[in-house]
Amino acid sequence: MIKNFKKQNVWFVFTPYLWLVLFFFVPLALIFKISISVSEWGMPPYRDLFSLSENGFEINSTLGNYFFIFSDPFYIRSYLNSLSLAFTSTLLCLLIGYPIAFYVAKSKTSIRNILLIMLIIPFWSSFLLRVYAWKVLLQGSGIINSILIHIGLISEPISMLHNHYAVILGVVYTYLPFMILPLYGYLVKFDLNLIDASNDLGAKPLNTFVKVILPLSLPGIVAGSMLVFIPVVGEYIIPEMLGGSDKLYFGKIIWDEFFVNRDWPIASALAMSGIVILVFPIIIFQLMYAKYNFKNE
């Protein structure tokens, strides 16, 4: 730690501090305030929390928006759908990504560097355009339908877009590099002699994997899963582009409440509940995981 730093360089700490309070914390507090406000027609479309009128000082606060959300299965289902989408796609990314990361990490250095670049290219290219690519592929007149008809599996184009399977496919495709790269980062540091040692000592391949490889790549699994799970929970673009009306997700519900229904208090209450239901578990998990790591070190 540097002594005497504080006096001379207060701005070094306080510029970002102030910025984050102003543009991150205050807006969140504002959402909370609006979420307990009463909605009304006008601009802004909610009543002030405190007001002075003929009747004297009034507090117009309500938990009604929260009651409204949690009494309507429509909203509750959207939270559950988002959670299950995040779980399913994280698991699929892990199952598909792990063998890829493992074999890339085990390749010869010269090939490995080329494969690594090939993993980074989709990671860098535009997220929106990669989702759009699947919209093109899954069209009724799209290439996948054409192939299936050509090889005789189906006779008529089947509709593959606008359902939750298309959403899962889109999510797995766009987030796969986020899973593979951290996994690769841990597997590449991994000493391959450990596998040989385990084999020489008579362990079956499955045992070697479960008892040696898996524990050593656990930090990579956790990091990759976090990178997929966290953004997918609030995902808006993929359900909007590839999804249909069979399953609605939290991100799209907030968007519609705000932009379509113009109900700010409900949109804010949805966001606050979203933070509690979807974000807090992640933060708690991270804290517990950090503690667990600390103990083991």
Partner: peptide
């Protein structure tokens, strides 16, 4: 403050900033 924007869904971030700018 410096770490929670990492886990905040972008839809909530966008909504809160818009409401902030309007207010």
């Amino acid at each position: 403050l410096s770490s929670s924007p990492l886990v905040m869904p972008e839809i909530i971030l966008g909504l809160s900033l818009l409401l902030f700018f309007i207010s």
